[in-house]
Amino acid sequence: MSEKFKAKKGLDGIIADDTHVSHVEVEEKRLHYFGYDINDLCANCSFEEVTYLMLHGELPNWMQLKDYQQVEAHNRNLPTELVEILQRTPKYGHPMDYLKLGVDYLGIADDHNKVGENSLAINLRKALWLIPKLPTLVANSYRITHDMPLVLPDHSKSFSENFLYMMRGKEAENELEIKLLEASLILYAEHSFNASTFTSRVVASTLSDYYSAISAAIGALKGPLHGGANEQVMHMLLEIGSVDKAEAFLRDKIANKAKVMGFGHRIYRKGDSRVGIMTEMGKELAEKKGLTKWHDISAVLEKIMVEEKGIFPNLDFPAATAYYLLDIPIELYTPIFVVARITGWTAHIIEQHEDNRIIRPEANYIGPAKRTVNPLKSRK
Rank of each mutant, 00 (worst) to 15 (best):
I297C: 02
L332W: 02
E308R: 06
Y365W: 07
I304R: 11
D18C: 09
D67E: 15
L106P: 02
D12N: 13
H265F: 11
I85Y: 12
K170A: 05
G116N: 03
Q70E: 14
A43E: 15
L250K: 05
E182K: 09
G310I: 09
L238D: 10
Q352C: 01
V300H: 02
H112A: 09
D316E: 15
K293N: 11
N374P: 07
K114D: 04
G264R: 03
Q352I: 00
L176K: 10
K259S: 09
R274S: 03
K114I: 12
V260Q: 08
K179G: 03
Y105L: 09
G271F: 09
K257F: 09
I358V: 15
Y210E: 07
D296V: 00
K253H: 09
K259V: 15
V243W: 06
M236I: 09
A363R: 15
I122W: 05
D40V: 12
L82D: 06
H295I: 04
K303R: 15
V115W: 13
G13R: 10
Y92G: 14
I85G: 07
E177A: 08
M234C: 08
Y210T: 06
E239V: 02
P224S: 11
D327T: 05
L221F: 10
L176M: 13
G13E: 10
R274G: 01
H348K: 04
I304E: 03
A213C: 10
A195F: 01
Q352Y: 00
T89H: 08
T346R: 03
E48Q: 08
F34A: 05
I297V: 03
N162C: 11
V339P: 02
L325V: 05
V151W: 00
R266N: 13
V138P: 06
K288N: 12
K179V: 06
Y52V: 08
L326Q: 05
I131G: 02
E247D: 05
V26Y: 07
G57S: 08
L124C: 04
L221N: 12
A109Q: 15
I214V: 14
D327V: 02
F47T: 03
A121D: 13
N356Q: 07
V243Q: 11
V71T: 14
V151R: 02
I311L: 10
E307M: 01
Y268N: 08
A347H: 02
M236S: 12
I342R: 11
K257P: 06
D272Y: 03
N314H: 11
D97M: 13
D111V: 14
I38N: 05
S215T: 14
R360K: 06
L185I: 07
V339N: 09
T136W: 05
M96Q: 11
L301W: 04
A220Y: 01
K303E: 13
E58Q: 14
Y323Q: 06
K133I: 11
L376G: 04
L325W: 12
